[in-house]
Design a protein around this nucleic acid. Sequence first.
DNA 1: TCAATAGTGTCTCTAAGACACTATCAG
DNA 2: CTGATAGTGTCTTAGAGACACTATTGA
Lengths: 241, 241
Amino acid sequence: MNSDEKHYLAHYNSKDYPAPIYTVDTVIFTLHESELLVLLVERGNHPHKGKWALPGGFVNLEQDLDINETALRMLMAKTGVEAPLLEQVATIGNPTRDPRGWSVSTLYLALIPYTPVQQMLDSVTDVVWHPLNAVEKLDLAFDHLKLIEMATQRLQSKTAYTALPMHVLKKPFTLTQLQQAFELLLNKKLEKKSFRRRILNANLLTEVGESVQENGKGRPAALYEPSPKLDQYAFIRVFGG
Amino acid sequence: MNSDEKHYLAHYNSKDYPAPIYTVDTVIFTLHESELLVLLVERGNHPHKGKWALPGGFVNLEQDLDINETALRMLMAKTGVEAPLLEQVATIGNPTRDPRGWSVSTLYLALIPYTPVQQMLDSVTDVVWHPLNAVEKLDLAFDHLKLIEMATQRLQSKTAYTALPMHVLKKPFTLTQLQQAFELLLNKKLEKKSFRRRILNANLLTEVGESVQENGKGRPAALYEPSPKLDQYAFIRVFGG
DNA sequence: TCAATAGTGTCTCTAAGACACTATCAG
DNA sequence: CTGATAGTGTCTTAGAGACACTATTGA
């Protein structure tokens, strides 16, 4: 770096230039009692105070080492758990999505096993799991309904060629539980034999014992845990297509 | 909106809060003389003045209606053409990628048919097509080498399950030209019959006549133009996997 | 005729779809 | 035994891989 550039940087102040607002938002999915749920928080501040919204917020310029950490920090604050899967979906920016002005948000998608969230009194704001099927009736803040749709779309298409839905289940799980997770995400019944053949041939599971049936009925099922290579794995053919 | 929120918005000023720098960058690919090329511009301003960089820059808060338009505007300024394909790849944000401070960039990928770019004297800065294979030797500005790698990776994976490479060819084109484009992108030879069967069965092409061979040798090839549904089409199975 | 390039016929192989079948538990 | 749930055997089907073949041009 030459002295010319040093001089430039010494006098550079980003506040001298108009800039959009920048935030990070996350759609956190889980599965509970045969329902897909998304995490929503009640906004404690303006704008849209009192409405339901996605967990999200501004980058902490002192603490966050990158925007993934921004997303992880908020996820930890709202759920108290490390997400086994966090992945970027898209970035949306336009002048109308936030009443404060030109605004850009990077949207993340997270999958976690169900964990109750009522007693997470990290702040005065409410945090709830809300059924995905019913979010559209909710009058969400900003364009967050649209963001949830984008994340859902991404999750669905990834479900067709990866095994990511494993992340919404508590370990260990049975193949039947896993198939139900896939079916809920794809919104479509899958053929049992094809499903098992596909998943087992991928070598992403380790058998770790046998379950007992909850209601005592039927043959006990094998229990599995996913291997860490899960997130890198992609099938060469889509499922249910 | 209640009067409380109106009061809040009337007094809101984004400059009161620390915020990252936000930019949009685009990796523009084309194909020319059996080589993949990316568009680079010489930086006319600090920081990294004089180094090669991706075309990109700040959002124009008055003109741009969203960040896609930001990318399109820059693409138009540098190449003079509308890109037939522009798609978001990812957003990168951390405190070290720009010497001016915490910086976030949304990365786009564009594909255009080859068009010479020397005489585009839109500014004093140089604009060139540079061979993709040689960019790593170039000491690019910022983390732009990394961004090019991310875009290349995305283009390769999309080439395996879509027909997007059609966008780097001038219309009309022959199947042999198209196969060569795929082979360059995937960096791997493809089997002629499989390639043709796959592409033709997808019904993405309309035959529009016959070519004459450049050097007068060999049988003339059929010419095709892609249909507009091209961008929405995805094969259910990856190619060359 | 030959060289060069375009395009096809057809067999094999892999993985999904369909669906009937067997297995193991509680009662 | 029955009912319920777990898990398998196996035939069919779609589409990629391999590779030898035929077709059409200019010289």
